[in-house]
Amino acid sequence: MAPGNRPLSPHLQVYRPQITSLLSILHRITGVALVGGALIFTYWISSATYGPEVFAQAQSILGSWFGRLVLLGMTFALYYHLANGIRHMAWDVGWGYEMPKLRLTGWLVVLFSGGMTVLTFAAAYVVAGAK
């Protein structure tokens, strides 16, 4: 068969979605999203070098309803990618491939990232309220 014409696998559409495959692609999706997060980080840091007004503008953009929504997504993506990244490291050293362990660690990652996102945002609101 011609090199450019070979069948590609996996054929995602023939598989029923399950926790393992969903969390796997979510790792990539959150990773790509976090590249956007890195650019927001650079924007945030660099804005302060252009003077107090520009930094205040950046803070108000990030603090607007849209900015908060984006940061909420980024916070979840970050905790998810962090926790699932540790899950990946466990696999890299050969631990946790059995199905019960895969499901358990998968759900732990989801619970951790959801819970930590809520806690982090609650903490940010407390800090904002104290200022």
Binding site: A48, L82, M89
Partner: peptide, 29 residues
């Protein structure tokens, strides 16, 4: 993966710090 290992503590520190910078002005930042 080496960068990932470094990012585990660095990210947790950064999130903690970023939360403290909520609503900060340029001088505090």
């Amino acid at each position: 993966r080496l960068a990932a290992v470094a990012l585990v503590p660095l990210t947790l520190w950064f999130v903690y710090s970023a939360v403290l910078m909520t609503g900060a002005d340029a001088a505090q930042f």
